[in-house]
């Protein structure tokens, strides 16, 4: 619908794979504005390339895909990160999503799935696999069970899902499409999309709150005992 093609950057350390993805994307009308084979290359080239979407492999030479995700989004919050991972290491995928990635695909996904995913991620949508939905559900259960849950202060973001969000996420994890979910729950497609996006947003928010709390805790420790602080630093 838009005249300007979607600008994409491909980060993967396997040249054959990178070329294949690049070809597929170009064939579908995307503009591949940059490629990189390591995390360092990706971060160095990102500012000049200004891609809308970064298609990122998680297992790349350092810095890791998770770090690249965080850095890239700090530099340009309007960019989108789509994780394309071979082995689907669960913790890595979850970490990348917490760092702000809004899409995840396994590499065995077909060409059409990849192209569809890039298009949706570029449009601000989230691309969940059933596997990722299961992980995110599990993560929210874990957060809820934590002995010291993030307090829901007036400024604090809610770190729990609403019943509806949980319901929608469960359906995604059971392999249902947004369309099927919309039909089942008698909602509009857009509303289902919003619910799914909210779940990721809450997870990322929770992650940021956790990181800030950690940073504050560390900072206070350092300030209070400047002499002996070195001993209990990890």
């Amino acid at each position: 619908m838009s005249e300007t093609p979607i600008r994409v950057m491909v980060v993967d350390d396997h040249p054959m794979w990178r070329d294949a993805v690049e070809r597929d994307l170009q064939g579908a009308g995307f503009e591949v504005v940059g490629v990189a084979s390591t995390g360092a290359e990706a971060l160095a080239r990102f500012p000049a390339c200004r891609p809308h979407v970064v298609v990122l492999d998680l297992q790349i030479p350092p810095p890791t895909g998770v770090e690249v995700t965080a850095q890239v989004l700090r530099q340009d919050p309007s960019a989108r990160v789509l994780i394309l991972s071979a082995s689907g290491e669960q913790q890595d995928v979850l970490d990348a999503v917490k760092a702000g990635a809004t899409g995840y695909l396994v590499k065995s996904a077909s060409r059409t799935e990849l192209i569809d995913a890039v298009r949706r991620v570029a449009g601000g949508d989230t691309v969940y696999t059933p596997g990722l939905a299961g992980l995110v559900l599990g993560e929210f259960r874990r957060i809820k069970d934590e002995p010291d849950p993030t307090p829901r202060g007036p400024d604090g973001p809610p770190s729990e899902l609403t019943d509806r969000e949980t319901e929608v996420l469960k359906m995604v994890a059971k392999g249902m499409s947004y369309k099927q979910i919309a039909e089942r729950l008698v909602l509009s497609h857009r509303t289902v999309q919003n619910h799914v996006q909210n779940t990721l947003r809450k997870l990322q928010m929770h992650n940021r709150v956790e990181l800030t709390r950690y940073a504050i805790a560390q900072g206070l420790d350092d300030g209070e005992q400047p002499a002996g602080a070195g001993e209990d630093r990890p």
Binding site: H14, M16, W17, A20, Q59, A86, S87, V106, K107, S108, S110, R111
Partner: peptide, 21 residues
Amino acid sequence: ARAVHDGVLQTLALVQRRGHE
């Protein structure tokens, strides 16, 4: 092993995709 597995998985996924096409 993880590094090797990752490479093998990548290659298999690539063969799978290209093969289908």
